[in-house]
Computed example of a mutant assay.
Amino acid sequence: MSLRRRILILVAVVCVLAGVAGLSFLRAADRAEQRGRTQAGGPEIARGGLSLTPGEDGPRIVFRNMAWGPNRDELASVPAAAPEGARTASGVSCLRFHSAGGTGICLQAVKGGVQDGYRAVVLDARLREVSAHRLAGIPTRARVSPGGLRVAWTVFVGGDSYAGTNFSTRTSVLDLGTGRLDASLEDFTILKDGKEFRNADVNFWGVTFVADERTFYATMATGGRTHLVRGNLAARSVTVLRENVECPSLSPDGKRLVFKKRVEGLPAEAPWRLHALDLTSGTETPLAEERSVDDQVVWRDDRTVVYSLPGDFGADLYAVPADGSGAPARLMASALAPAFLG
């Protein structure tokens, strides 16, 4: 057999082997995608129907799936009793998410066109789009009122971190009954120390709603300090209550707020500790979580709050008692922005 013929045979064999290997890889990838199993031994994920109401199997958690794989960034669901169990992915992607009363708010990235951007999408209980609103900046916070009648969102319009002071936010509230959009809480009347207050550097973020669907709490920053405010949507006003409160979250019974508070002596890039505020007595209680939490917590029930901390794939969820007792424990890996349904 000539040398030339041997070379041609060798080349043909190499091409056949390469083709077989490529086909095997594609088939394996296809099987992996069908199974929905993420990389590095992550949670099993399968596409399926997802509702923003409790399932037949009881309470559920809906959240942004952060596990690497074909369903990363999609809304996913697990039974509340098995948070580390198999996940059902929806196909709807969100950067920030919250749900209550059968309504969802999903802050999304918009790709393509002349310029990428972001939008806020109101979802019904079946994750169908009810309305969409263009955002002026990078999504950071989202909340739905307990009855699902109002939604709020916050974006960064300058800077991208709460840790420093060089940032600007815009917080909007949408009334789903009337369709009225208050594009910025900065347009509301501010009452501070019994007088009307106005300053060019005012920022708002971190809305949490009261069950009456009219009252809310939020953070207001001005003069390098943060304040807890109570707002009235009907009067379009906010009243300053106290200093050094950020990202409040109201308990289901309406009696307590859990928030992040700047603590003197901590690093500038990680300055917060979680505290609970009794709205009747005014007593503040530090929670058992000693790490700096840059998140607006979500209440799992009247006793426990859930929040995110950095994880291997972006974020993990942790839970801690809201009365200062116990110790923090990881609830879910590779997850962000949870809503507890049921």
Rank of each mutant, 00 (worst) to 15 (best):
G194Q: 01
H275Q: 14
A136G: 11
S90F: 10
V229T: 00
G55C: 00
E56D: 10
E213Q: 02
L331W: 03
G158M: 15
T285H: 08
S131L: 03
A21H: 02
L23M: 06
V298M: 15
D295L: 15
F197W: 04
S292M: 05
T215I: 03
S2M: 07
P252E: 02
D253G: 01
A218C: 04
P83W: 04
L266P: 08
S77N: 12
R4F: 11
A12P: 13
T226L: 09
V240Y: 03
E246W: 01
D187M: 15
E243L: 14
V238T: 04
V114Q: 15
D30Q: 04
N232T: 03
I61P: 03
A81P: 13
L95Q: 14
A100S: 14
R27H: 11
V114M: 14
C247L: 10
D124Q: 04
L10E: 13
D212C: 06
Q34D: 15
I190K: 08
A221H: 07
Q34Y: 12
P146R: 00
L135Y: 07
L228Y: 04
A125L: 09
G179M: 02
R87Q: 14
K192A: 12
V173R: 05
V20G: 00
D312W: 04
P321S: 01
A29W: 09
L8E: 11
M332K: 00
V207H: 00
L233W: 03
L185Q: 03
R242C: 12
V110S: 06
R35H: 10
R87P: 11
S90A: 12
V130E: 09
E290Q: 13
G101C: 10
G101N: 07
S131V: 08
S161C: 05
A89R: 02
E289F: 08
W68E: 12
G55P: 02
T208Q: 01
R242M: 12
G324K: 05
C247F: 10
L185C: 07
A163C: 11
S184W: 06
L174Y: 04
E74D: 09
K192M: 11
A335Q: 01
S99N: 07
G147W: 00
A80Q: 02
L185V: 03
L52G: 08
V144R: 09
T53H: 10
V114N: 13
R256I: 06
T285V: 10
L274M: 09
W205H: 14
L174I: 05
V297I: 07
G36E: 00
R230P: 13
S161Y: 06
V297A: 15
F63K: 00
V240M: 04
G342R: 00
A288Q: 03
V298E: 12
T53V: 13
R198N: 15
T304D: 06
A276Y: 08
G148Q: 02
